[in-house]
């Protein structure tokens, strides 16, 4: 009995001390260091634009009838849109198949020669126009590749730069300051048939320009990085403990970063290590 008591008592003390001293392993989110291709990208806003647009003007002063179409309506080549009446009765026809993109005048009444009436856009020939800071535009070349994202569906579209405008324009940024910007135009490559009909004029997209490409590089998600002093570092998992590892990095895109020194393929890194993670902390 005596021995039993002392044993149990001792065990209780031992367990309590262990619980008190030894902290629980922390739960962490983990990613694996991988090797593969890496695209450095520059992402910006863009618009889809119909390359071919035509504005129909009044070719004589007279009376015009009500416009038969609205913005967005599909029109066929030679479809009658309205009628201009002066000495003659001349129908106003659509020059090609496309979509009504702008209406300047839709009500019946007198009209002067030269007034614009309606703009038709041809959707079969689309291009993407992106708006870049002039300092970014110089990093791109004609023929450079890009991905079109967030145009409505999940599959990115491929595009190629056709023109980099060298005329800069001052614009107000989204956050309210002035910036010098310039246009970059891209043509869409290989647009599948079923998507053709879905894209329209002045549709918003995101353009991810491919600035550089590398194969077989070691890369890691950006979420794993943090700074110790002046250098970048990550925490790798060694068994059940976290270990600090200094690394050297190179290019980055919006998700990953290329690691030039310090990590090997297959090692596990902790994503977003919190303040509680230190060298040697137990993790799971």
């Amino acid at each position: 009995m005596k021995r039993l008591f002392y044993i149990v008592g001792f065990v209780a003390i031992a367990i309590s001390v262990t619980l008190l001293m030894r902290p629980m392993p922390l739960k962490v989110e983990v990613a694996t260091v991988s090797k593969g291709s890496f695209d450095e990208t520059l992402i910006t806003d863009g618009k889809i634009r119909a390359k071919t647009k035509q504005t129909l003007y009044a070719f004589a002063s007279g009376n015009i009838e009500n416009l038969k179409v609205k913005v967005g309506d599909h029109v066929e080549k030679n479809q009658v849109l309205s009628k201009l009446v002066w000495d003659y009765d001349r129908p106003l026809k659509s020059p090609f198949t496309g979509v009504v993109s702008k209406i300047y005048r839709d009500s019946a009444g007198p009209i002067m020669r030269g007034e614009p009436i309606v703009e038709i856009s041809q959707l079969t020939d689309l291009e993407v126009v992106a708006d870049l800071l002039t300092t970014d535009a110089v990093r791109l070349q004609k023929g450079g590749k890009a991905h079109i994202l967030n145009w409505g569906m999940d599959t990115p579209l491929e595009a190629e730069i056709t023109v980099i405008s060298h005329a800069g324009v001052v614009k107000m940024s989204a956050l309210g300051v002035d910036e010098e910007r310039t246009d970059v135009r891209l043509k869409l490559l290989r647009v599948p048939q079923e998507i053709q009909g879905k894209l329209g004029d002045t549709y918003h997209v995101d353009v991810a320009f491919l600035v550089s490409h590398a194969d077989e590089v070691i890369k890691v998600p950006l979420g794993a990085l943090f700074k110790t002093g002046e250098t970048w570092a990550v925490y790798i998992i060694d068994g059940d403990k976290a270990r600090l590892r200094n690394i050297q990095v190179a290019k980055k895109n919006d998700k990953e970063i290329v690691v030039t020194q310090g990590l090997a393929v297959g090692e596990k890194v902790i994503l977003f290590p919190g303040d509680k993670i230190h060298e040697g902390t137990r993790v799971q």
Binding site: D45, A174, G223
Partner: peptide, 17 residues
């Protein structure tokens, strides 16, 4: 604001994610 803010802020050196 529209997603133009993303590109605008992304351009500031030092922005990672």
């Amino acid at each position: 604001r529209s997603s133009g803010v993303f590109s605008e802020i992304r351009q500031i050196p030092g922005v990672l994610l």
